[in-house]
Design a binder for these strands. Structure first.
Length: 430
RNA sequence: GGAUCGGUGGCCGAGUGGUCGAAGGCGCACGCCUGGAAAGUGUGUAGGCGGGAGACCGUCUCCAGGGUUCGAAUCCCUGUCGAUCCGCCA
């Protein structure tokens, strides 16, 4: 959702920003609708003002006992009614046209992100760790001897179908340990507020964060209308839906560990082996609610929170800033953090940290009252994974694998495994 | 699932047909009081949209949508959300 006044003030800048997304100029048609809309509003309100004035005088006429005037005014108000209704309908129609148009357009990309067509044009901005050298050919996570028994895709397929997994034993334990580790890091070292949220939400919330109306195909809905969240961004961000906050309340920084559900409708055939892409997975998600002037710094801060998790786990990663062609519709700037997976011999996305500006805040009507007074302003929202647990599990397993099929586990996780340090080739924790 | 009661400003809460954008309180802002603070005290304090250079003016908003009426926060209908009790259940 865009601010019509910003477009009015500087249509050229608006078109220039959209053109970076490969879109045709929109401002002239937007402004034409806006002008028509304002003319209709003015007409409707003028008619309404006349009717209101007459209605007010009706009572006075009655009080004076001026029956002739009373009847005349009554008739006048009655006549105006139809005209007002018609003008109002026309004004509403123009307003709806404008809203639909503004809602349907993607967010404006941030000035400092690169132009580009697709993911190949993303730009690396940070890299940590060396590409590990193995004295043997590293395998994918599900091929590691010590992992095979604890990562059961066949039983999961029986239970639920493809793109599900049943974890058991030491793998399930490691999976749980990762979630605990991440939450502790974020709450105790990064200052985020731990939150446990619903995973079923009202449709309205999916509009608030922008999953709807365009991307309903990607998510699941229950028979009675709830949506299963594709990410805790939905619940955490919508905490401030409809609120007017005191400025002193900001910044607000949340973290939650939740299940996430995605239909993966558009990714048939991609990443079908292993647990890289599942219909149901767990993720630790961070969301910040900040003043607009703080959003760029907050974006960097959140990126570092996610990076810190990977560093503590001894993983190699790189951070890229998405180019205009790869940027999500609702976002102004996104950092993807990609972890090195030896089994795939590639970097794969493990976290995505995004700055939405006021795009979501406008949809949610989430504002704050400036401390120095003045009109309420829209907040800025940011979200980022900190990080995807299933993918992190993959990374830990593939990077820790040994030639004998065992897995050495990162020191940071040892306390969460009651001192256990490795998975044996037979799949035992020891 | 059954029954009942509700939805009013940033928050709480009065208000059952016009004088209501709406008492009172909280919160917040500024002032007084104070050595300084607390307490006390005074004043102010909704949002959206439109017009206007501006002062300011108009219009809408008491969950949403319809209806009754010259006139609706108030009456009627529908929807929606919430609470409580009962039943069922982890």
């Amino acid at each position: 959702m865009h601010d019509i006044r910003t477009i009015r003030d500087n249509p050229a800048a608006f078109d220039a920003a959209l053109s970076r997304r490969g879109l045709e100029p929109q401002s002239s048609s937007i402004l034409a609708i806006d002008e028509a809309r304002r003319a209709k509003i003015l007409a409707a309100e003028t008619a309404q003002a006349e009717a209101n004035k007459a209605a007010k005088e009706v009572g006075a006429a009655k009080g004076r006992g001026d029956d002739a005037e009373f009847e005349r005014l009554r008739a006048l108000v009655g006549e105006k009614k139809a005209e007002i209704a018609r003008l109002n309908d026309e004004a509403k129609a123009e307003d709806a046209r404008l809203t639909d148009l503004l809602m349907g357009l993607p967010n404006l990309p941030h000035d400092d992100i690169p132009d580009g067509a697709d993911e190949n044009d993303n730009v690396e901005i940070h890299q940590h760790g060396a590409i590990p050298n193995f004295a043997f050919d590293p395998v994918e996570h599900f091929e590691i001897a010590g992992v095979k028994d604890g990562m059961d895709f066949e039983t999961a397929a029986k239970l639920s179908g493809s793109r599900f997994v049943l974890l058991s034993g030491s793998v399930a334990r490691l999976h749980r340990a990762l979630a605990q580790f991440m939450l502790d890091m974020h709450t105790e070292e990064h200052g985020l507020t731990e939150t446990a949220t619903p995973v079923l939400v009202r449709e309205e919330m999916m509009y608030g964060t922008g999953q709807l109306p365009k991307f309903g195909e990607d998510s699941y809905q229950t028979t009675n209308g709830w949506w299963l969240i594709p990410t805790a961004e939905v619940t955490l961000t919508n905490i401030v839906n409809g609120l007017t906050l005191e400025e002193s309340y900001l910044p607000r920084r949340y973290v939650a560990h939740t299940l996430c559900f995605r239909s993966e409708a558009g990714s048939a055939g991609r990443d079908t082996s292993g647990m890289l892409r599942q219909h149901q997975f767990e993720k630790v998600e961070m969301v910040s609610i900040v003043r607009p002037e703080d959003s760029a710094a907050e974006h960097q801060r959140m990126t570092e929170c996610a990076q810190n998790i990977l560093e503590k786990l001894g993983l190699t990663y790189r951070t890229v800033v998405l180019c205009t062609g790869d940027l999500g519709a609702g976002m102004r700037k996104t950092h993807d953090i990609e972890v090195w997976l030896p089994g795939q011999n590639a970097y794969r996305e493990i976290s995505s940290v995004s700055l939405a500006g006021d795009y979501q805040a406008r949809r949610m009507n989430a504002r704050y009252k400036p401390a120095e007074g003045g009109k309420p302003q829209f907040v800025n929202t940011l979200n980022g994974s900190g990080v995807a647990i299933g993918r992190c599990l993959i990374a830990v397993l593939e990077n820790g694998q040994q030639e004998d099929g065992s897995v050495d586990l990162p020191t940071a996780l040892h306390p969460y495994l009651r001192g256990k340090t490795r998975i044996t080739p037979a799949g035992e924790l020891e």
